[in-house]
Design a protein around this nucleic acid. Structure first.
Length: 258
DNA sequence: AAGAACACCAACCGCCGTTAC
DNA sequence: GGTAACGGCGGTTGGTGTTCT
């Protein structure tokens, strides 16, 4: 596939790009995306690489439909936090913010249609019956817009914590929230569901796809790798040995992918 | 069987916060 | 302290698969 050197690729990822990205994330860790984008030879932006990794390639991601437990959890958490998708996603291991966002969007659209049908009799065609996106019509939980906006602004403006330890205070309140909503059972269910995932090597993908670096199978190894490599004088030093990796990669995985 | 409508998913864009220089 | 670069997040859009008529 020929791409102009300076032209950034967009659109769907190919299998080969996926493999290449996984390999380089295995080598350098899942940070420094611009760097990975450059050295990997993928004509993608760092953002694009990160998104692909986070939403699709990351080991441990779940596939398939949301379970009823997860759906309930999303609803509960959304009622608390609004559209804080990444935060909600952290409470659903294996689910991405994008996935939850998509789910919610579909879910709300469905609910909106149901509500529209219920509220608007065939004869009365009020043009003002627009749906309020802040209404959580599931189980009758209504969400005043002020609640969502309030919660959001609190986080966005750093009122909850301006010292960078937002996660700590957030987690604490999250647990309180969980208790308050009697979600212990949900958590147990999810924990049970997670046993399969957590019992295996989380970063198995890194090992499988980077046979030339078998010692990087565990996250700790990745961190070690990252810490060491980040000190390299970036581009110049890397140029010396990256071609080898690329050649190796192609020779191992480049067959039959086009 | 064909077309329309719907549902789902992947990816991009713009903004904002953080970090490094 | 100011600024640029980067990473992360939420919003949005377009494509594809599935279901319905």
């Amino acid at each position: 596939m020929m791409v102009a050197p300076d032209e950034t690729r967009k659109g769907p990822w190919t299998e080969q790009e996926d493999l290449q990205l996984m390999c380089f994330v295995g080598l350098f860790g899942d940070r420094r995306w611009d760097f990975i984008a450059k050295v990997s030879g993928l004509n993608r932006t760092g953002k694009s690489c990160r998104l692909r990794w986070v939403n699709y390639l990351h080991p441990g991601l779940k596939r398939g439909r949301m379970t009823p437990q997860e759906e309930r959890l999303v609803l509960e958490l959304h009622s608390q936090w609004g559209n804080r998708w990444s935060r909600i996603a952290r409470r659903l291991p294996g689910r991405t913010d994008n996935e939850i966002k998509n789910y919610w969007r579909t879910h709300m659209r469905k609910k909106a249609q149901e509500r529209k049908r219920a509220l608007s009799p065939p004869s009365s065609s009020s043009s003002t019956n627009s749906f309020s996106p802040t209404l959580d019509s599931t189980s009758g939980v209504s969400l005043p817009e002020s609640q969502i906006m309030e919660g959001r602004s609190l986080h966005d403006k750093g009122v909850i914590s301006t010292t960078g330890d937002l996660d700590v205070s957030g987690d604490r309140s999250e647990e309180e929230v969980a208790k308050g909503y009697s979600m212990d059972q949900i958590w147990k269910d999810i924990a049970l569901m997670q046993e399969d995932v957590s019992s295996g090597p989380v970063y198995e993908g890194g090992l499988i796809l980077c046979p030339q670096t078998p010692s990087m199978a565990s996250p700790s190894c990745w961190n070690y790798c990252s810490d060491a490599l980040w000190r390299m004088d970036d581009q110049e030093d890397l140029k010396m040995w990256l071609p080898t990796i690329n050649d190796h990669f192609v020779s191992n995985y480049g067959h039959g992918l086009e």
